[in-house]
Design a binder for these strands. Structure first.
Lengths: 153, 153
DNA sequence: CATAGAACCTAAAGCCACTATAGCTTCAAT
DNA sequence: ATTGAAGCTATAGTGGCTTTAGGTTCTATG
């Protein structure tokens, strides 16, 4: 046995060690990412090292931008070390593609914004390029840059 | 007079011409971005060209990633063409900075994800680099890349 | 003129991933 | 015994819409 995790701790300690908020821990329990923990005599949650490791995994994956649903799948896989890891690989690849697409859209957006800001002469609203460009879609170089609601996603 | 906008049209036509959904138009009215329009005898909304131009401005600014509150301010300025445009300029500059910061965070994230995906040998979960890296924060090159919940924002 | 179906109406709930608030109870230190 | 921090549950709020439910009105055709 590697380590036996005998001592337990309260939710505040768990949250602090994993670097998240107390409410977030309870939320993860509610949506089933974390198991319902043992309670002490006063009905307070008591956690062990295994839960801390699980929560750290969750937070880390979330920081990587994986959705909660993706984290749920990754957790399921981490729980079965003998299964093939194709699916984990597929999830990560897909996420990488999404991040790359987002970067592309944001870069086009950044270029348009730069152009807009650079052309503002600082006069009255009537002559302002910023207001003007927003009023008239034809004044954009790359219309694909902001073609829909997903421009920012 | 430039154009007199005498003919009116229904909400579906307005939405189609502005490139958004009907419910979105009603939502913008509800939050005060669009004025309450005239109604016909059967209580249906009837719009004119001025509202179409206003909605187009809104959609365009939203596509640029401006928040609804920023759009509200920009609209207020567009309504007063004789005022100085410093504030519009400041809003756009600030938004540009936010977009640039987002691109930076996402780029660091992309590098980490690439590294992760490249090192997955395709075996069992136990040996999978993806699951391993998510389990252990120390295996990341740039911890700043995903240091908090705002990694993805 | 009757009818069918598209388009409209309001009100309320759902989405994501938390965060915040209110009003209480329990713990730990003095 | 007291006090203040930390815990508890339940509910609402965030942003920016989207969806659903259950109705009414418009418009084109027979």
């Amino acid at each position: 046995m590697p380590h036996s995790d005998k001592q337990t701790f309260a939710i505040g300690t768990l949250a602090r060690r994993a670097g998240c908020q107390v409410q977030t821990v309870r939320y993860y329990e509610q949506i089933g990412l974390l198991p319902e923990p043992a309670r002490n005599a006063g009905n307070q949650r008591r956690y062990d090292g295994a839960t801390l490791r699980r929560l750290t995994f969750i937070r880390h994956a979330r920081d990587f931008g994986f959705s909660v649903e993706a984290v749920r799948e990754l957790l399921g896989m981490a729980d079965h070390p003998n299964m093939p890891c194709d699916h984990a690989d597929a999830i990560a690849k897909r996420h990488l593609e999404e991040v790359e697409a987002r970067i592309e859209r944001l870069s086009a957006l950044r270029d348009e914004l730069k152009r807009m800001v650079a052309q503002c002469a600082g006069g009255r609203v009537e002559e302002c390029r910023i207001v003007e460009v927003l009023s008239d879609h034809d004044q954009c170089l790359y219309t694909a840059a902001h073609g829909g609601q997903q421009a920012i996603r």
